[in-house]
Design a protein around this nucleic acid. Structure first.
Length: 83
DNA sequence: CGTATGACGTGCA
DNA sequence: GTGCACGCCATAC
């Protein structure tokens, strides 16, 4: 199991209507300090099976999205996530 | 194998 | 509260 897969798995574990932070995902993947790599990996591995749009920044900012940040925010709002 | 990059986080002004 | 600079890790070339 590579760090990449762990990250994707952790993201896929995020329940609907909830959000997680890159830091949290990194910790889930076993590298709490690799939040940098988390964003990088997600950006290069945007599987539709992975709700990567539920991953936000620690400061509450939406962050980014491979399909456009606007799209990400839209999905989050649809799921009932409050900003 | 070594360098550069990125959807980040924290600290300080 | 806002803005800038540095540090960190894994991946890609």
């Amino acid at each position: 199991m590579k760090f990449k897969d762990k990250v994707l798995l952790a993201v896929s574990r995020i329940p609907k209507g909830k959000t997680s932070t890159y830091k949290e995902i990194a910790a889930r993947a076993g590298r709490p300090l690799a939040y940098r790599a988390v964003g990088n990996i997600l950006s290069r591995n945007y599987d539709l099976k992975i709700p990567c749009h539920r991953v936000v920044r620690s400061n509450g900012q939406p962050g980014g999205y491979n399909r456009g940040a606007e799209r990400k925010i839209l999905v989050l709002k649809k799921e009932g996530v409050r900003l």
